[in-house]
Design a protein around this nucleic acid. Structure first.
Length: 448
DNA sequence: GAGTCTTTATA
DNA sequence: ATAAAGACT
């Protein structure tokens, strides 16, 4: 019987997996493989590597113990495996990030030397990046019209697991996964945990999502990001589960999925935006080269602005930060401290379990004003009013900034007005927000 | 080609 | 109210 290889990467699941179905459709056995590529691991960093190891363990369970774990350059590993089991086709989901897409081209050429074909089926997105175009046949640059077109587009149905699927290890032993001490408290990972959380979200949180998602103290967001990052769930599955439901919360959640699709599309059309400004609209902008002490004060949650510090501390402890705080903390680094966004984006990528190039880099650029946006000019988040609006009781701040636990209610967002003398452990404000806002606007003015 | 829109802030 | 500009239909 023939064997086809399924090379898994950002699609670590069994369900709703078109590339798996394509491998099965070759007619023989399917050998699922994951390659621990030293280049990949070097880029992933400790937090994401720790999560990956756990996801791989769970994936092996999903595949009934058939996941073959190998280490090395994927081109060499896959050539060797294909030769060993006599495979003529290696199946993948198409990678749409620049680094992965280049790697896949190298692997395609290497396999071709042995007449082995690299077959792409599906992507990590509901609609493959590049498929949504505006009325003039061009990619969208603005979210709202993209989201409308994306919603109106036909959405593919989930792909069932083949019922006569035959898996094989091809007589190959797995290597041991890297031993990484997780530097954060990892959430439950793997397909089963993801679907359990998703079911709970549908039961408990999605109805109130429109309001609840913006209040970090409620912790009622879906927490699907880490699973979407590794493809443990596919957004197509989520969309299909939401389809029969109505309501504002459902609509807003679908919009959040649309943001992910939008940024995937933008990266596909603009690979350079993973590392540099997407547009040159702020090309002449003056930035500050922050010394390590100032950068650390931001990174470790010691800016003296409680809402900002709470977000940064949540990131360090959980490897995750609520999206409202991602915007607020990014605004603080770029607008209050005048730092170029890639430095902050890199810190996020190093510390987030869900770190996704397209969403992270473009989220940062949205805040910084270099990305996709119609109105960057006056977008400077106020850390105090953001806190008072989205953490009205102050519970989120008190949870993550224990030095302020003694300040009741929303007064916690301005400890400097609450405390006579202000002489507890909590740091003084690093900068004056009103002054730095003005400074940021002045610098932006100079680029026009 | 005009009207609409924009995960916001301050007065 | 008003701050500005460009993408989109």
């Amino acid at each position: 019987m023939s064997t086809s290889i399924l090379w898994l990467r950002r699609d670590l699941r069994l369900h709703d997996h078109p590339a798996l179905a394509a491998a099965h459709a070759d007619g023989g056995e399917v050998m699922p493989v994951f390659v621990l590529d030293p280049d990949l691991l070097a880029r992933a960093g400790e937090v994401r590597t720790a999560a990956l190891v756990e996801v791989l363990r769970a994936t092996d369970e999903s595949y009934d113990g058939h996941l073959v774990l190998q280490e090395g350059d994927p081109a060499e590993v896959l050539r060797r495996l294909a030769k060993k089991v006599g495979a003529t086709r290696v199946h993948i989901s198409r990678e749409t990030e620049p680094w992965g897409a280049e790697r896949d081209e190298r692997v395609r050429e290497a396999l071709a030397q042995d007449d082995v074909e690299l077959v792409e089926t599906g992507t990590p997105y509901v609609l493959g990046p590049g498929t949504v175009l505006n009325g003039s046949g061009n990619p969208y640059k603005v979210f709202t019209p993209f989201a409308k077109a994306w919603r109106d587009h036909d959405h593919p149905k989930p792909c069932p697991v083949p019922d006569d699927l035959r898996l094989t290890r091809g007589g190959v032993d797995s290597v041991d996964p890297p031993h990484v001490e997780a530097p954060v408290e990892l959430p439950p990972l793997g397909e089963e945990a993801a679907m359990q959380r998703w079911a709970d979200f549908l039961d408990e949180d999605v109805a109130g999502y429109d309001d609840g998602r913006d209040q970090p103290a409620l912790d009622s967001t879906s927490r699907m990001s880490v699973h979407l990052k590794w493809g443990v769930v596919h957004p197509r599955t989520l969309l299909a589960d939401l389809a029969p439901r109505r309501g504002k919360g459902v609509h807003t959640y679908v919009t959040e999925l649309a943001w992910r699709e939008f940024y995937g599309d933008v990266l596909h059309h603009n690979p350079h935006s993973a590392t540099r400004d997407l547009t040159d609209s702020l090309a002449g902008l003056r930035y500050d080269d922050l010394d390590d002490e100032t950068f650390s004060a931001w990174a470790e949650g010691r800016t003296g602005y409680p809402f900002v510090d709470a977000g940064m501390r949540q990131l360090l402890e959980q490897g995750w930060m609520h999206n409202r705080l991602r915007m607020v903390t990014a605004s603080f680094l770029t607008k209050d401290l005048h730092c170029w966004w890639p430095r902050g984006a890199a810190w996020f990528m190093d510390h987030l379990v869900d770190g996704d190039v397209a969403s992270n880099q473009h989220g940062w650029q949205w805040v910084a004003g270099t990305g996709t946006d119609a109105s960057p000019y006056f977008r400077v988040f106020n850390p105090v009013t953001q806190g008072e609006r989205f953490d009205p009781k102050g519970d989120y701040v008190r949870r993550w900034v224990p030095e302020l636990a003694h300040i009741p209610g929303k007064a916690v967002h301005q400890p400097w007005s609450h405390d006579e003398g202000y002489d507890h452990d909590y740091p003084k404000r690093l900068v004056d927000h009103a002054e730095e806002r003005k400074e940021a606007l002045d610098r932006l003015e100079q680029t026009r």
